[in-house]
Design a protein around this nucleic acid. Sequence first.
DNA 1: CGAAGGGTTGATCTCTGTCAAGTCTAGTGG
DNA 2: CCACTAGACTTGACAGAGATCAACCCTTCG
Lengths: 246, 246
Amino acid sequence: MTAKSSARQDIHNSEIPVLCRSCEARHRGICGAMTPEQLLKLSKHTRRTLKDTDANLIVAESKATQVSNILRGVVKLTKIMPDGRQQIVGLQFAPDFLGTPFGEYNNVDAEAANNVQLCSFPKAILEEMIHESPELEHKLHQQALKQLDEAREMMLTLGRKTAAEKIASFLYMLAIHLDPEIDHETEQVEFELPLKRADIADYLGLTIETVSRQITKLRKDGVVQIENNRLFKIPDIERLKARGES
Amino acid sequence: MTAKSSARQDIHNSEIPVLCRSCEARHRGICGAMTPEQLLKLSKHTRRTLKDTDANLIVAESKATQVSNILRGVVKLTKIMPDGRQQIVGLQFAPDFLGTPFGEYNNVDAEAANNVQLCSFPKAILEEMIHESPELEHKLHQQALKQLDEAREMMLTLGRKTAAEKIASFLYMLAIHLDPEIDHETEQVEFELPLKRADIADYLGLTIETVSRQITKLRKDGVVQIENNRLFKIPDIERLKARGES
DNA sequence: CGAAGGGTTGATCTCTGTCAAGTCTAGTGG
DNA sequence: CCACTAGACTTGACAGAGATCAACCCTTCG
């Protein structure tokens, strides 16, 4: 189906560009705040791209010209010190918005934690559309507030939790985000770890050795089961949650 | 001058409510995004209050009904774990906005770090006004983004810096925020510490003993001079900055 | 097969937390 | 006016959580 054919019909859903139809960003992301006309306009400037693990998506201090929706995968936002010490300051999951909506320069680096699919478009288009519909700014504002919340929760974790608690609450957070069918609390939760040990260390303010040791401890205590180093099964999610205190 | 008399005139500045005239929140805070009519409307619902050190301003999990501008002083935003471990997740300086603009419940505690003056009003009024003028939401959005930035900078500090670096970058941040005349880099910077040692510890993820020792070290190294435990003089701000790495 | 990347495990060290005692100041009451 | 107390802060001795250093395993890939 082409843009032309969808433009011809005026029935509710069909004005929406083909590519956007089944896109998560339209349901839970910022595109939900756009009119069909805006989506159509936007879709003329979007480009879908695939990025491999550790690919650079945004470079801090660079001029911010492109913004994106994350369609698949996990993106790490990082800060780095002159001597190389690194801290992951945010993890973003599909269908989050990725970019610096206002402000000229990016203030964090962003790279793909695993394989990532993006839907990118020029920042100028976004700003134009915000001007037209305040609802879009509201959506971005909401996401900023959510991220602020997460950042503050993370500050508690970084400042006050033990290594064991950090790992447990991190895995709990991942389980909530990544297991698609986690409504029925009773059932076993399972997910594939999108980060390598070094990333987890950079996220939790630890070393890879400490991360490894604490995960081993959780495994030996039966709180998690691990296959292939990356597939995590959690028989009792509440037990994992309890290990993270808070 | 009464509201009546100010309503009569239509010359530029005089429509602005008396109380707001010299208020910082109008210049650097969110009130700058309001029309004189909005200010007038808002001023009918505002209440100025003074709060002593450690007074509770916002209780987490409580329903958010009031929001405020901070007119004077410093506010700590804190998170606390069931066992009492505490982390300050944000410091807010006049004329910052304080409150949960959307979302029904507060998700942090807020208390006065020193003596604080607030200008408070019902959240409902704010929401009404946001509805009328998108510019106001933009202002709130901007502040959220700024706080997100600060939170992420703080995550790097908490996760990766040593105690010595934490203290130095904290003092540097305070100097930037609190010394009114810090344009001429060459001159001596000086400020009164708004936090007690216990607060600094809760902010930096340390203990009061470590905080004390590191401050003593900075004093012995001549990086800072201290009078009365609270008045800090910094002969060479760049030297302090360098101690915080980053 | 060899090399490289990711992960684990052990031995040791060190930074920061813990425990404890002591100083200094401001405020209170006799 | 001075002793007494409480809170904020400092300092010292010691201990422990997590970092560092080093060796090793496992899988993948050319």
